[in-house]
Simulated assay, not measured.
Amino acid sequence: MFKHIFLSLNGYKVSYLRNDVISGIGVAALTIPVAMGYAQVAGLPPIYGLYASFLPVIAYVIFASSPQLIFGIDATASAITGSIILGTAGLTAGSKEAIALAPVLAFFCAIFLILFSILKLGRFAKYISAPVLSGFISGLSVSIIMGQIPKIMGLKESGDSFFSSLGIIFGQFFQSNWLSLAMGVVTIIIVISCKKLIPKVPMSLVVLILGTMAAYFFKLDQYN
């Protein structure tokens, strides 16, 4: 079995299992909500982020040869997919058309990546200067943050670019769901503060659990 598939498990010891399970639960608890958020960034329903957070990982375990793999839903790919679906194609986020277009984009991206690998075009990456790459990542981060703020405010509409999100934030501020906004602001303050005060505590995970419990026990869905 380890000659062709499950190569990453070759030589695996039972003694690793306990720590791997604990690590896996912690990573999954943070990765799945993040992936569902990035699905919305890409213009898709959150459930597709759930699929993307574990199905590719299973494929990697089966077909990859390295026991050390870093995999996660990529913010860059999500933002670019969203800009194509919502901006270039002009589709509505979460619509049937958007859902149909996303796998087509993924398929052709895979084709191009295979071609890049065959032609060894990765060598051209070294010609991209550090300031250009840093500026791209910083701009992308700001764009994603701005796109998520309307969701924290509880607004149904969110922009497909920095300026459209900015217009929604200021134009519809007084239409915010104040409970959602308050929870979002408190969560951000807690996470940022605790990273400095108690850095060893995974506060993002703690806040995620507390938020989930609050939503369940206090029936927060009735407040939209």
Rank of each mutant, 00 (worst) to 15 (best):
L133T: 13
V142F: 03
I144S: 01
I128Y: 03
L140N: 03
V132G: 05
Q148M: 04
G135Y: 02
L121E: 04
G139C: 06
I145L: 13
K126F: 14
L140F: 08
I118A: 08
I128C: 06
L140K: 04
K120N: 12
K126R: 15
I144G: 02
S129W: 08
S141I: 11
S143D: 00
G139L: 03
S129C: 06
S134G: 12
L140Y: 02
L121A: 08
I118R: 12
K120T: 05
L119Q: 05
A130T: 15
A125K: 09
L119A: 15
S141T: 13
S138H: 10
S141Q: 05
G147Y: 02
K120G: 08
S141M: 14
M146E: 00
A130P: 14
K120H: 13
S138A: 14
L133G: 15
S138V: 12
F136P: 11
Y127T: 09
I149S: 01
Q148N: 06
K120C: 03
I118K: 08
V132M: 09
K120Q: 10
L133K: 15
A125Q: 11
I149F: 02
K120W: 06
M146I: 00
L133V: 12
S141N: 11
L140C: 03
S134D: 12
S134H: 10
M146Q: 00
S143I: 00
V142W: 01
F124P: 08
V132D: 02
G139Q: 05
S143A: 10
A130Y: 14
I128Q: 06
Y127L: 12
I144R: 00
L140Q: 03
L119T: 13
I128A: 10
I149P: 02
G135E: 04
L133P: 08
P150F: 00
L133Q: 11
F136I: 10
P131Q: 08
Y127A: 11
F136R: 08
S129M: 06
I149M: 02
L121R: 09
V142K: 01
V132Y: 04
L133D: 07
I149L: 03
F136G: 01
F124K: 07
R123I: 15
K120M: 11
S134P: 02
F124D: 07
L133M: 14
L121W: 11
S138G: 15
A130H: 14
K126D: 13
I137R: 11
S143M: 06
V132E: 05
G135I: 07
I118N: 06
S138E: 10
L121K: 09
R123T: 13
S129A: 09
L133S: 15
F124S: 09
L133F: 14
L119E: 07
A130E: 14
I118W: 05
L121F: 10
P131N: 10
I144W: 01
Y127Q: 08
I128H: 05
G147D: 00
I137Q: 13
L121D: 04
G135W: 06
K120I: 03
F124G: 07
I128T: 09
Q148I: 06
P150Y: 03
I145E: 02
I145D: 00
I149H: 02
V142R: 01
Y127G: 12
P131A: 07
V132K: 09
V132T: 14
